[in-house]
Every structure is written in C-alpha cells, then in structure tokens.
Amino acid sequence: MKTGRLTWVLYVLAGVAMAFPVFLVASLVRDGAGLLSWRFLTSESQPLAAGGGVGAELFNTVYVVGLALAASVPVGLAAAVLRREYGWGRRWGPSLEALADFGAGVPSVVVGFFAFVLLVGALGWPFSRGAGAAALFLLNLPWVAASSMVVLAAVPDSLREASLALGATPWDTVRRVVLPSAAPGLVGAATVGAARLLGESAALLFTTGVNAAGAGWSFWAPGATLAVHVFTVRTEGLAPDATAVSAAAALVLLAMVVVSLWLGRVVSRWFMRRSGLA
C-alpha cells in the first residue's frame, strides 16, 4: 500500500520524539562515562577539588529509598486490601480511592514542604536520612495504595467466589487467592514507585540536608541522595570536573532505575510463572 503523507509526518515526528532520549543518554555518556569506575562509586564527593565520587550519595540513595519503600509498600498494600477485599470505608463511597488518586498526584515539592514544616519544624527532626525517608514515605504511600487498589480490582471476582464457595475464610481468600494472582501487578506498581523515589529530589532538598563525611549508619545522619547530588553539582558544583561528575552521577542514577525496573520485571515474571499465568 502507498504510504500516505500523514504517515510520513508521523514517522518524522516519532523519530524526533525518540531522538531526544537517545540524545540525552548520549550526552550523559559523552560527559560522564570517562569518570565511571569503582573508585568513583566508592569515594567521597569533593566540593572544591576534582576527583570526587558518589560513595556516600549511593549509600544514602539505597538507605533512604529502601527505608521509604519498606515502610510505604506494606502500609499502602494493607490499606488497599482493607478497602477492596474487606470493604472498609465503604460508607465514604469512592472517596478513599479518590483520596489516594489525589494524593498520588500531589507535586513532590508540596510533599517536601509538608515534610519540612511537620518533621523538621514541628517535631524537631534533624535534616537526615530519617526525615528524607519519611518524606518519600509520604510521597509513595498514596501511589502504592492507589495502584494496589487498581491491581486488586482487576483480579476477577470469580476467583474470590470460587474460594469462598469452597469454604475458605476471607483472609484465606486474600492470602491464597487474591494476593498471589495480583502479585505480578503489585510488584510492577511497587517497582514504578521505587523508580520514582530514586529520581526524587524536590521532596528531599530541605529534609535530608547536605552530606558530611563520617556519617556512618545512623538514621539521623544527613543523607543527600544521588538525585539531589546531580542537581546540586550540576547547578552549583565548583569542582573543575563538576559537569563530568554530575553526568556520571546521573548515569549511575539511570543505571539504578534501570536495574530496579529490570528486577521488578524478573520478580513479576517469577510470580506469574508460579501462579501459572505465564
């Protein structure tokens, strides 16, 4: 068939659209790939001199994001299970879903503002990994709840009915029927949440503080993450190699996002195979 004029236009536009991300990664690689090394990943950052690494930022990213995920995923999932499987909050109608959807769309800078006012201001927390993790927890909770509700809603009712008809209690039904068949979707939702948290910086600028050496493992130590580091080094870094450092840090961040998405896929597939869906 003859290719129409509109189709040509679409090909060009699609090519342009896809060129931008390629261009982005290419410029990151051009500026930053030369720095990537085991030393870069493990050494301290340098505010003024060249040769700084991202050791502390990498550690903080895993720490803060891991903590936020470990807290927000179970709580959000439990809320979704209560809402969808036990009908909690039915009297409020759909407002719980609406609230979760609304919460998931709140700009992260507003969440950061709330976290700053509430945790650092009212409760007197220091600028720390803990405060950052709490901010990310607040950011991720509505997302986990909202997306888990959607995933649970997609589990066919026939499964539940069959389980209940066989005499299983609702809890058994949730545990043995609903959650296993929803697991791939739930893992996917959690993964997207993780990727979002890895790249988050607006909610962390005024909660995690600025890194200092010798922070150790403490919950209360300052803990700027990689995303915050990319921002600060890119906009105000004064080391002679600041552009390269920020590009390399961005590459590391991208790699972490890709790895977490890939892990999510693997785990999700595993659940699918186990429940015989794939």
Binding site: R196, G199, A227, L253, L254, V257, L261
Partner: peptide, 8 residues
Amino acid sequence: AIPSVVWG
C-alpha cells in the same frame, strides 16, 4: 522513569 533532574 528517567528522573527529572536528569532532564534538567
């Protein structure tokens, strides 16, 4: 999933 700071 590309973080917005990277786009910045």
